[in-house]
């Protein structure tokens, strides 16, 4: 649990961080809250000769709500997300999900940017961002580009982000949809055995739109378009929920670990998805 030697960089602006990245290529990694990277370094599973701490970069912080557009700086902590009343008004599911991430000590350090950028299938925010159809801003030496959360994840720890890019902000639209983030975990600080984010809007007494995404049930977050399709136009009755759950389960591929075997995870996933849909609908 003792990391190998590394150089510590602490630039004060994005340009400074990019120049260290450019200089050291894949020998460098940016550090946000550190809850994934530092343990990996201590276990010597991540070899990071150059660590670039982003915490002094003011441009990466803050929550901005401009009309319907919500922008989260990548270095905004989970605690800040939870505490922000305007964000809660614009998109309440963020607070609900962030409160299910570990404990207050972790949330004081852990950041939204690190959570979505790391590509860890256990992280809670990526699925949620897919539900919100968020876009991630990536800044590199060649300029700035924007990638949809729904296109960002390739496989565990592998994302659209190039090694020399930094994820600087997250943008999505405010939503009044009914929402739920349901998560089953063994204990505080654990990754989900199964978790599901659901956003549902209503038109009359029918489902107008739905977005259903799952956490830690595949090697990437899974947005189930089939599950959403099974709900849209229905009154979200028991049969519709059942069909949506069945569709969602088709889209996931959990693996056995200490949390339990695949059959258990599939069963629990079904329950969690069903509860998320039901609760989101009740608030729609």
């Amino acid at each position: 649990m003792i990391p190998a030697a590394f150089e510590y960089h602490r630039p004060s602006d994005i340009a400074g961080a990019l120049s260290v990245l450019a200089e050291h290529g894949d020998e460098a990694r940016v550090l946000a809250g550190g809850h994934s990277l530092i343990p990996m370094m201590k276990l010597r599973m991540a070899d990071v000769p150059h660590l670039i701490d982003l915490q002094d970069i003011a441009d990466l912080k803050g929550i901005t709500i401009d009309g319907d557009t919500v922008t989260l700086g990548a270095m905004t902590t989970q605690h800040e997300l939870i505490a922000d009343e305007a964000l809660f008004a614009a998109c309440p599911i963020i607070r609900e999900a962030a409160l299910q991430i570990a404990d207050p000590q972790v949330r004081y350090m852990g950041t939204i940017g690190g959570n979505v950028a790391n590509g860890d299938p256990g992280n809670d925010m990526p699925g949620l961002m897919q539900c919100l159809d968020a876009r991630f801003t990536l800044v590199g030496a060649d300029g700035t580009r924007s990638v949809a959360a729904r296109d960002f994840y390739e496989s565990a720890y592998m994302t659209e982000r190039d090694d020399e890019e930094i994820l600087t902000q997250i943008t999505f639209s405010a939503t009044g949809a009914g929402y739920a983030y349901e998560k089953q975990k063994r204990k505080i600080g654990d990754y989900a055995t199964a978790a599901c984010a659901a956003l549902i809007t209503k038109d009359g007494d029918k489902v107008a739109t739905a977005a259903i995404a799952m956490t830690n049930l595949s090697d990437i977050p899974v947005l189930s378009e089939a599950a959403a399709a099974a709900l849209v136009g229905t009154s979200c009755d028991a049969d519709a929920v059942k069909a949506a759950v069945a569709a969602a389960l088709e889209d996931i591929d959990p693996t056995e670990d200490n949390r339990g075997p695949v059959a258990f995870k599939m069963h629990v996933a079904g329950i969690i998805i069903s509860r998320a849909i039901t609760r989101a609908w009740s608030g729609a």
Partner: peptide
């Protein structure tokens, strides 16, 4: 009696 073993007890008893 972690979650999956409790679940397994229910499962083995036909409760699912």
């Amino acid at each position: 009696h972690d979650h999956w073993r409790i679940w397994k007890t229910a499962n083995d008893l036909g409760m699912h």
